[in-house]
């Protein structure tokens, strides 16, 4: 066994094993997005998800639904039918009737005017 063979066996093979293990370890996480950590800024556009308007029985007015109160004129980037980003015109509706859903959408526009839902309940939490 000369020097070249010894190098190949005692350095090359361990190095190859290490490289293979490193690739197997690091590759699955290479395209993963950074995980949310509490306290970090959230600089994404607001998103509003709504359930699929499927054939629910009972009193659900689902079949006539358009997007959940998206009044803007731009197309919604829908994934399936349940994901509607909030449009920019919606951000500054303080009273709700200035740039509200009457902004000229063809379908489902008039159905989602802000309407009082009686006494509201719910809860609030911080973390």
């Amino acid at each position: 066994m000369n020097v070249a063979e010894a190098l190949l066996v005692f350095a090359g093979i361990p190095l190859a094993i290490v490289v293979v293990l490193a690739v197997l370890t690091l590759k699955p996480g290479a395209d993963r997005r950074p995980r949310y950590k509490p306290g970090q800024a959230w600089d994404y556009a607001p998103i509003w998800f709504e359930p699929h308007p499927a054939h629910t029985g009972g009193h659900d007015p689902a079949p006539a639904h358009g997007p959940a109160a998206v009044p803007g004129s731009s197309g919604t980037a829908a994934l399936g039918s349940s994901m509607y980003p909030e449009q920019p015109a919606e951000r500054n509706t303080d009273t709700g009737d200035s740039a509200g859903p009457a902004a000229g959408r063809s379908q489902g526009a008039t159905a989602h005017a802000p309407q009082p839902a009686g006494p509201l309940g719910g809860a609030r939490g911080t973390w």
Partner: peptide, 13 residues
Amino acid sequence: EELHARSGANPAD
């Protein structure tokens, strides 16, 4: 609450 009022055809539900 403002968003809730606009969240569908029947916000009471």
